[in-house]
């Protein structure tokens, strides 16, 4: 079999693992691997193996991949990198040979790429632990919007589950239209297509607290040390829209 094909998986991490496992088993080297909803170009040769979701197979995979390799694969999967599936395929392939030593084999292109991407995802997750801003709705539920580069809402929710475990809160990923809802016990992830919240009514205090925070923010900077570049290095502009103390910052002073 000389010709290479694009293989299709079912838009989930487990389905991707299942597919790659099957490719390894049959010694197939794919031209690419893509999710179901990808739009192929004219010359793409697509194969959908339609693999049955077999829990046993997935359990086997999870058992024989060490937890930090599996973790790396998962983080790469959550990234927005357009070649992430192939990177996962090759990283996994190398890991069969090198086992846990794989983390030192940065001279291999796919290994270096995978480690870089997974670091990037975990860094963005860490950043948003700080940059996310809740607003209080009139029923005391906390509501936040984020628009991260990578699909980190699953990782991020773990943090807030521990931190605000005695509050009702929801986080919306505006880019992917996913909600995470927390009811003081569990997190639920809901697609925005099946879930709608009406016009949002903020609590009585909300405005007041926001303006106190903005006052604090403005006051705490030392004017003699002003350093916009340093500020922007640490807090890139792409996040500003949802950071309340930055969102209204007049653009002119930066340009």
């Amino acid at each position: 079999m000389n010709e290479k094909y694009i293989y299709i998986y079912n838009n989930s991490f487990l389905s991707l693992l299942n597919l790659i496992q099957t490719l390894f088993k049959n010694k197939i080297v794919p031209q690419n691997i893509k999710p179901q909803d990808y739009s192929p170009s004219l010359f793409d040769k697509i194969v959908n193996l339609d693999i049955k979701e077999d829990e046993q197979v997935i359990e086997d995979i999870i058992n024989y991949l060490s937890s930090n390799i599996l973790n790396t694969l998962y983080y790469v999967y959550l990234s927005s990198n357009e070649h992430k599936e192939l990177i996962i395929y090759y990283f996994w392939g190398h890991s069969l040979k090198y086992k846990n030593k794989i983390f030192y084999m940065r001279n291999l292109k796919s290994v270096n790429a995978a480690l870089k991407i997974s670091k990037y995802v975990s860094r963005e997750n860490h950043r948003l632990k700080g940059f996310l801003r809740f607003k209080e709705l009139s029923n005391r539920i906390l509501y936040a919007e984020i628009a991260p580069e990578n699909n980190i809402i699953f990782l991020l929710s773990k943090h807030f589950r521990k931190r605000l475990n005695n509050e009702y809160w929801m986080i919306k990923d505006v880019k992917r239209n996913i909600y995470c809802l927390y009811d003081k016990k569990d997190c639920f992830f809901v697609d925005g297509q099946n879930f709608e919240i009406g016009p949002k009514q903020w609590s009585m205090d909300e405005n007041n607290i926001q303006s106190l925070w903005k006052t604090f923010y403005k006051t705490i900077g030392i004017s003699q040390r002003k350093n916009k570049r340093c500020q922007m290095n640490f807090m890139p502009k792409k996040y500003w829209k949802y950071i309340i103390e930055m969102s209204e910052d007049d653009e002119e002073s930066y340009n």
Binding site: R225, K226, F234
Partner: peptide
């Protein structure tokens, strides 16, 4: 507590106009 925990690595929540991290209500 009812609310809050600490993160061992620390978390920066914002950066002031002088580029310094804001993590605590100082």
């Amino acid at each position: 507590g009812d609310i809050g925990n600490t993160a061992y690595s620390g978390i920066c929540h914002s950066f002031a106009s002088d580029g310094r991290c804001i993590s605590l209500l100082k």
